[in-house]
Structure formats: C-alpha cells, structure tokens
Nucleic acid binder design. Sequence first.
DNA 1: TTTACTTATTGTATTATATACACTAAGTAG
DNA 2: CTACTTAGTGTATATAATACAATAAGTAAA
Lengths: 248, 248
Amino acid sequence: MLEAVSQLNTYISVDCVVFGYDAEKLNVLLVERTLSDDEPMPDFQPDWTLTGNHVYEGETIKEAATRVVFNLTGISDLYLEQFKTFADPGRLLKPKDQKWLRSIGKNPEERVVSIGYFALLATQDVSLKWMGRRVKWTPVKKVGQLGFDHNEILEQAMDALRNKMKHEPIGFGLLPEKFTLTQLQTVYEQIFDTRFDKRNFRKKVNRMKYVIPLNEKQKGVPHKPAQLYMFSREVFEKTKKELFDFVI
Amino acid sequence: MLEAVSQLNTYISVDCVVFGYDAEKLNVLLVERTLSDDEPMPDFQPDWTLTGNHVYEGETIKEAATRVVFNLTGISDLYLEQFKTFADPGRLLKPKDQKWLRSIGKNPEERVVSIGYFALLATQDVSLKWMGRRVKWTPVKKVGQLGFDHNEILEQAMDALRNKMKHEPIGFGLLPEKFTLTQLQTVYEQIFDTRFDKRNFRKKVNRMKYVIPLNEKQKGVPHKPAQLYMFSREVFEKTKKELFDFVI
DNA sequence: TTTACTTATTGTATTATATACACTAAGTAG
DNA sequence: CTACTTAGTGTATATAATACAATAAGTAAA
C-alpha cells in the first residue's frame, strides 16, 4: 500500500466505519483512544473511536480511507463507500475530545472535516493488525459511547448501509466468498432486524441469476450440509433490470 | 436567513447543484465566474460554475448550502441533500482555476474540501436574484465546460438524483405544488431519458395513496384540462411498505 | 443399528403487480 | 360544427409476493 512521504493535512480526515459480519451479527471495528505514555493526564480514561486518520497531502480521500482500512486489516480489496461528510462546528468540542486534541499537539479550535466511509467484510477473513493501539470488533448493537462524534457517524453509516442494501447486492460483502443461503438470509435478517420466510426468500434468490450454486457443500457441520453459493458481480451487471422498479 | 458575522472558512466550501424543472426539461443553476473589475487580466474569459460558497465559522455545512440557495432563489423550503464530498488534491489545479483563485487573494495551493448538495425546485416558483454576478438556468443536457471540477460534481449529482428518485418520492420537488399526472410522468421520462406507457404509469400512481387528486382542474389550456394532484409526505410516511421490496 | 436431533430443502394456492396494447372524452380555436 | 389537442381509461397475460408445513440428509448418542 502507498506509503506517502508527504505530510498529513491537519483539517481533512476520513473516518471509516468498518463493518464485519461473523455469521451471527454485525460488528464494527473500533480502536482505543489513549494518550501517549509521556502525557501526564491521569484523568483521561481510554475510550473507543471509529478508525480514521487525516489524509496526506497528495493523497485522494478514497486512498486515505483504503489506507486506514488496510493498515488495520491487511485487506484492500473490499467494498468501501463514501457515505457522508461531517464538518459542523462543535463536532469536536466535548471536553474529552478537546483534551485529546491538545495532547497530540493539535489546535483544538481548528475546524476538521471528516469524510465518512463504510466498509464491508467477513470477520473470518481478517486478522486484526496491531498498530500501536488496541483494536477490536464490537457488535453494533452493543457499542457504547464513542469518542468525538463517532456515535453519530456510526448511526449514519448504519442508515447508509441499510439503504444501500435495499437496492444493491452488497450484502455479499459481509460473507465469505462461498456462503449458504441460510447465511445470506441471516445477514439480511440481522441488519434489518426482521425475519423472512425461508421458502419465499429462496424463491427470491433463485430469480437472481448472479447468486450461483457451486459444486460444493458445507463441511464439518453436525447436520445436513448446505449447498454453497457465490456471488458474481459480472452476471449481476449483465442481468439487472432497468427501471420501472422505482417508486414515484 | 442567517447573516453570519463570523469569517468565512477558507478550506471548507459547499457546492450546490440546484436542479430546476420547467415543465419540459431539467435545468441547473449556474453563476458566471468573472474577475473583479479592477483585476487587470484581459485573458480571463468569464465562464460558468455551479453555485457555491465557503462556510462561515460557526455555520453548519447544511446551513451554508441553504444560504447559498436562498441567496440566489429566495427559497429556503426545498429538497436539499448532501450527496458527495470532493477533496482530492488536484481538483483546483487547472490553470484557469489557479488564476481565478489568485485573483481573489486565495492561496491556490491550499486544499479545499467541497461538500456537494443537490436541491430540487420548479423553476416557475423562482425568480433568480442578482447577487453581483450573472445567474442563469441551463438545461442539464446542454451544460458546457464549467469552472473548477464542477462538471464532475454535476455528473455525480445527476447520478445521486437518479438513484434517489428510483427509491424515494422526491420527483415532486421538481413540480409546482399542484401538478398533472402528465407532468409527473414527464419529469421521470426526462430524468431517466426514457418513455413510459401512460396507462401503466397511471395505474402505478393510482396505488400510491400519497398522490392525491384535488377538486381542481388545469386552467387556460387549449384542450381538455387535466385533473390536478398534490403530494402528501405525511400520507407517504404512513402508508409506505417496509422491506421485501429489496434486492439481494 | 436405531433413534433423536438439527438444519436443508422444497411446492401450492392466492393475491398483487408488471407489461403490452388503442380507443373515447373534453376541452379550445377557427 | 369541424379540426385539433391532450386527458383519461380497460383487459389479458406473465411475473412476483405472500402465507403456509412436510420431507430429506446429515451427525451424535443410545
């Protein structure tokens, strides 16, 4: 991955909401926010934030987001989408945020624009990289109070994810390359917090010619093994219908 | 409208793609880019750009976008949506852009983040305000080369508009409050560059209980006057179906 | 080997929506 | 009253949505 030699821009950052699905639930990647060891600030309790960084001069914002995700996961080939930008005055004005900004030598008055990206992957494809700070998966439903305005950013990312998933075949980004139909159904049930009828769900998938059955079955399960499938974006692009599937 | 006393931030701007529909075609609001009169730069030919401005310190980015649109149109109650942010290095590096930036005393090296909004309105509801620069409606299909990276921004706005219109009832934002079904159909035909069957289109609209017939007909037309309708967002919110109208 | 257990897989009937297609109705203008 | 223009409507067929329950294919334990 690109290792920019140029300087970090101080007022443009990207925040990445990295969603990881683990066959049961949707998780989000968080990093611990601490002060550097030599900072004498005993009242600063470490807490958690989304992953993000400022952009290098000379780097595009998408490159910056890709770099952030790559540095933590080692993955660069994933679904990554810019969903919203956060630039309001007051977004970094909580006392704890101000304290942290000062501690790393930033001007806490400076207005920082943060461009939000969300990324999708299957947690089983990832081993988290230690980048000098603790990193963890947290179930989205159990995320507590985050640093900065990151709870807001996470919420907006969830909205964007749900919206996109309603109309584009991106749920596959949360599954391993080979998956079962039950796994696929469960992804949608988890994210939309609902249940579907199995037969009707499969009828629907059946019509989608880009969900392709493989000559392979699940292994190592203590019950009837399920058929494995893969997603083909190529077939999707070729077979998708245009229009009149729209709302007025 | 808010008249900020604070200073303009130099590196955060909003660009507004103001779409106006005029019963025939989709237009976009452009402003002329000139040098101030006392600038001795005879080789700078005026050209056109989208409408935009930097944000005031203390102002949210949505407020800034609302202000920009209000100042040109006098309208503040319209559909306005953040669709994408443009912050790549090199987006303002064309010689003409550099010349212009220098002429207004900006550092042309500074990296400027521009947050893109698009807005919808019916041109007949608007009388353009003279803000010291020429302003005009241009048919989207006839837009030539714009200043800065505004052709790129316009294209992305069109993409966002089409996408949103496929799944949300926002087409009404381009029509006057009372409209005919033919007008509604034409909006969609223009924007998606296609034709629909009149009977099928009306059957579809008929099922949408939030498109409400009024006790009123078109006036002053030299043929059978059409029934007028209105859109009710309230009814829409109450009657919209949840889920399973999704793509896997 | 048999039984219990678990998850995978499948079909039918009903209703709603999509699509293709052409004629009549209600105005104005001359 | 005739010509012109746009508004408004119905039917038949195919596809998709929805509600609903029994059988199949494995493993694990008796």
